[in-house]
Amino acid sequence: TFELKGKVGKVVKIAEDHYLVESEGDKWIAYSDEKLSLGDRVMVVDVDGLKLKVKRIP
């Protein structure tokens, strides 16, 4: 299986209740415990079905 946990991506869209993150050339629906901005670099900390939980990284 394709393992996304630990992968790095970038926030490419902000929606009302989720983010769109591009990682490894694909776009994924993501959510975070912190507020993210367009262009933020993020790391995948968990995968919930087809949704990614991400956190901001420097």
Rank of each mutant, 00 (worst) to 15 (best):
S32T: 05
A30C: 13
R41M: 13
V8G: 03
K35Y: 11
I29V: 07
S23I: 15
L4P: 15
V11Y: 00
L50I: 10
I57G: 04
A30N: 00
V44W: 04
S32M: 04
I29S: 12
V12I: 07
K5N: 15
V12K: 05
F2P: 15
A15Q: 09
D48E: 09
L38D: 05
K10I: 08
G39I: 02
G49M: 09
E3P: 15
L52P: 06
W28R: 04
I57K: 04
L38Q: 10
E3D: 04
H18V: 11
G25H: 05
F2Q: 15
G6W: 02
V42N: 00
K13V: 11
G39P: 01
K35N: 11
S23P: 01
S23R: 03
L36V: 04
V8S: 05
L20E: 08
K51C: 13
D48N: 08
V44T: 03
Y19L: 11
A30R: 00
M43P: 00
R56V: 09
S23W: 01
L4T: 14
K51L: 14
D48A: 04
L50N: 09
W28H: 13
R56G: 13
V47K: 03
V11W: 00
E24R: 02
G9P: 01
H18I: 12
D46K: 02
D40Q: 08
D46P: 01
R41Y: 13
S23A: 15
G39N: 13
D48Y: 12
P58K: 04
K7Q: 04
K55Q: 14
I29Q: 12
E24F: 03
W28M: 06
M43R: 01
D17G: 08
I14Q: 07
L4H: 05
E16T: 12
P58V: 09
G25E: 07
V54P: 00
D17Y: 11
D33W: 13
G39Q: 09
L20V: 09
V44K: 01
G49N: 12
E34W: 04
G39Y: 13
V54R: 00
G25T: 05
S23Q: 06
K27P: 04
E3Y: 02
D46A: 04
E3G: 01
K51T: 13
K35C: 12
A30W: 01
K55V: 14
E24Y: 03
G6Y: 02
S32F: 02
D48W: 07
V47D: 03
P58L: 08
G25F: 04
D46G: 03
V54T: 02
V47I: 08
P58I: 10
R41A: 13
K10F: 06
K35H: 10
K53A: 06
K5F: 15
V8F: 04
G25A: 05
K35S: 13
K10Y: 07
I29E: 11
L38S: 07
V54K: 00
L36N: 01
V44R: 01
W28Q: 02
K55F: 10
L38F: 11
S32W: 01
V11D: 00
D26T: 11
P58G: 07
G6D: 08
K55Y: 06
S37F: 08
W28I: 08
K7L: 04
V12Q: 06
D40F: 05
T1E: 15
K51V: 13
D40Y: 05
W28S: 02
A15Y: 07
L36F: 05
I29F: 13
K53C: 10
A15I: 12
V42L: 02
V21Y: 04
I29N: 09
G25W: 04
A15W: 13
K51Y: 12
V47G: 03
E16K: 11
L38K: 07
P58F: 09
D40H: 05
K5C: 15
A30L: 01
K10D: 11
V42K: 00
L50P: 08
G25M: 05
K51S: 13
L20P: 00
F2R: 03
E34P: 02
L38M: 09
E22H: 11
K13W: 08
G49H: 11
M43E: 15
H18M: 12
K7T: 04
E3A: 01
R41Q: 13
L36S: 00
V11F: 00
V8W: 04
A15G: 07
V21E: 00
F2W: 05
T1S: 15
D26M: 14
K51Q: 11
R56Q: 10
D26G: 07
T1G: 15
G49Y: 08
Y31L: 13
K53R: 12
L4E: 15
S32L: 02
S37D: 10
G39D: 14
V8H: 05
W28F: 13
K53M: 10
A30D: 00
L50Q: 10
K53S: 13
S32N: 04
D40A: 06
L52G: 03
V12C: 13
F2H: 15
I57L: 10
V54M: 02
K5M: 15
K5G: 15
G9Q: 02
E22V: 08
P58T: 11
D40S: 06
E22F: 08
K10Q: 10
D17L: 09
R41S: 14
P58C: 14
V21W: 14
I14L: 09
Y19G: 01
I14K: 06
E34N: 05
K10T: 06
S37L: 11
V42E: 00
K55A: 13
R56I: 13
V21K: 00
V44Y: 04
V44F: 15
L20I: 11
S32G: 11
I14F: 09
Y19I: 07
K35E: 08
E22Q: 05
E22D: 05
G49I: 06
Y31A: 11
D48S: 04
G49D: 08
V8N: 05
D40T: 09
L20K: 05
P58H: 11
K27W: 07
K27E: 10
S23K: 01
V8Y: 04
V21L: 06
K7I: 02
I57S: 08
Y31S: 09
D46E: 06
D17F: 09
V47S: 04
D46C: 08
V45P: 01
S32P: 01
E16D: 12
K27H: 08
R56C: 07
K53V: 06
V21A: 05
I14G: 03
K51I: 12
L36W: 01
K13N: 09
S37A: 11
H18K: 10
I57Q: 13
S37G: 06
A30Q: 01
M43I: 14
K10G: 07
G25N: 06
G9I: 02
I14W: 09
K5D: 15
D48G: 03
D46F: 03
G49L: 05
E3M: 01
G9T: 03
V45T: 11
G9H: 02
K7D: 03
V47W: 05
L4Y: 04
A15L: 09
G25Y: 04
D48Q: 08
G6V: 01
R41K: 12
G39E: 12
K7W: 02
G39K: 06
G9K: 01
S23D: 04
D17P: 11
T1M: 15
D17C: 10
K5R: 03
K55N: 14
V12W: 06
S23H: 12
V8I: 14
A30K: 00
L4M: 14
G6I: 01
R56N: 07
A30I: 02
A30H: 00
V21S: 01
L50A: 09
V45Y: 07
G39A: 10
V44C: 13
K27I: 11
I14S: 10
M43V: 15
K35I: 11
Y19V: 11
G6A: 01
K13T: 10
V44E: 02
R41V: 12
L38C: 09
I57R: 03
R41I: 12
E24K: 03
T1W: 15
K13F: 10
G25K: 05
G9V: 15
V44I: 14
D48K: 05
G9A: 14
V45D: 12
S32Q: 02
E34A: 06
K5L: 15
L20M: 08
T1D: 15
K5Q: 15
V12D: 06
G9N: 01
S32D: 03
K35L: 10
E22K: 07
V21C: 08
K7S: 10
V11N: 00
E34H: 07
K51E: 13
E16G: 10
E3N: 01
